[in-house]
Amino acid sequence: MIIGIGARRGVSSQEVLDAIENALDVAGRNISDVRMLSSAKLKADEEGLHEAANILGIEIRFIDHDELNKYDAPSQSQAKRFGLKGVAEPSALALSDNKKLILRKKVYGRVTIAIAE
């Protein structure tokens, strides 16, 4: 399972960890089910995302914008202002095996989470 993450600038690792925990609770899944974290290339410099991935011991990948735009995000997204259809949902779908969202994007404060398998 892949967790796609969208985040506001300067988000902390604790905000990311809390959002992931809440999303997994809603989905009825465990952190041990997570194969990878993903986000948009424009978030590659966000320390909080890198720190959260390190704390969890799960790889995070940052997906090119052209790749993200291949996936239709079923939810409205603020990412349109960056020329993206979305961040959390498309980044989760891009790396997932079945290309199926098991949790549509949910906003937790300054972090947005979607889960795909």
Score class of each variant (00 low, 15 high):
1 M>D: 04
1 M>Y: 04
3 I>R: 05
4 G>P: 03
5 I>V: 13
6 G>S: 07
6 G>H: 01
7 A>W: 07
9 R>Y: 08
9 R>D: 13
9 R>T: 08
11 V>A: 11
11 V>P: 05
12 S>I: 09
12 S>L: 11
12 S>F: 15
14 Q>G: 02
15 E>M: 05
15 E>A: 01
15 E>C: 05
15 E>I: 00
17 L>D: 04
18 D>F: 07
20 I>K: 04
21 E>M: 00
23 A>C: 09
23 A>R: 06
23 A>H: 05
25 D>M: 05
27 A>N: 14
28 G>E: 03
28 G>A: 12
29 R>N: 00
30 N>W: 06
30 N>E: 12
32 S>Y: 03
32 S>H: 09
32 S>G: 06
33 D>M: 08
34 V>R: 10
35 R>K: 11
35 R>A: 13
36 M>V: 03
36 M>A: 14
37 L>K: 06
37 L>I: 06
37 L>Q: 00
37 L>V: 01
37 L>A: 08
38 S>K: 01
39 S>F: 00
40 A>R: 08
41 K>Y: 14
41 K>E: 14
41 K>H: 08
42 L>A: 00
43 K>F: 07
43 K>Y: 02
44 A>F: 14
45 D>P: 02
45 D>L: 09
46 E>Q: 11
46 E>I: 08
46 E>D: 11
48 G>S: 08
50 H>R: 12
50 H>Y: 15
51 E>M: 13
51 E>N: 12
51 E>L: 12
52 A>I: 06
52 A>K: 11
53 A>L: 09
53 A>Q: 09
54 N>E: 15
54 N>L: 09
56 L>R: 12
56 L>H: 06
56 L>D: 07
57 G>Q: 05
59 E>H: 11
60 I>S: 13
60 I>D: 01
60 I>V: 15
61 R>Y: 02
61 R>K: 15
62 F>P: 09
62 F>E: 06
63 I>R: 05
64 D>R: 13
65 H>D: 15
66 D>N: 08
68 L>M: 07
68 L>Q: 07
69 N>D: 10
69 N>S: 01
70 K>Q: 14
70 K>G: 13
72 D>V: 12
72 D>K: 14
72 D>M: 02
76 Q>K: 14
76 Q>G: 05
77 S>K: 02
78 Q>Y: 00
79 A>M: 10
82 F>R: 11
83 G>Y: 11
85 K>R: 15
87 V>A: 05
87 V>G: 01
87 V>H: 05
89 E>K: 02
90 P>V: 03
94 A>E: 07
94 A>H: 04
94 A>C: 08
96 S>A: 01
97 D>C: 01
97 D>Q: 08
97 D>M: 00
98 N>Q: 05
99 K>H: 07
99 K>S: 03
100 K>A: 12
102 I>Y: 00
103 L>F: 01
104 R>Q: 15
105 K>E: 09
105 K>D: 10
105 K>V: 10
106 K>N: 14
107 V>A: 15
108 Y>L: 13
108 Y>I: 00
109 G>I: 13
111 V>K: 04
112 T>K: 05
113 I>D: 04
114 A>G: 10
115 I>S: 03
115 I>P: 02
115 I>H: 06
116 A>G: 10
116 A>H: 02
117 E>Y: 07
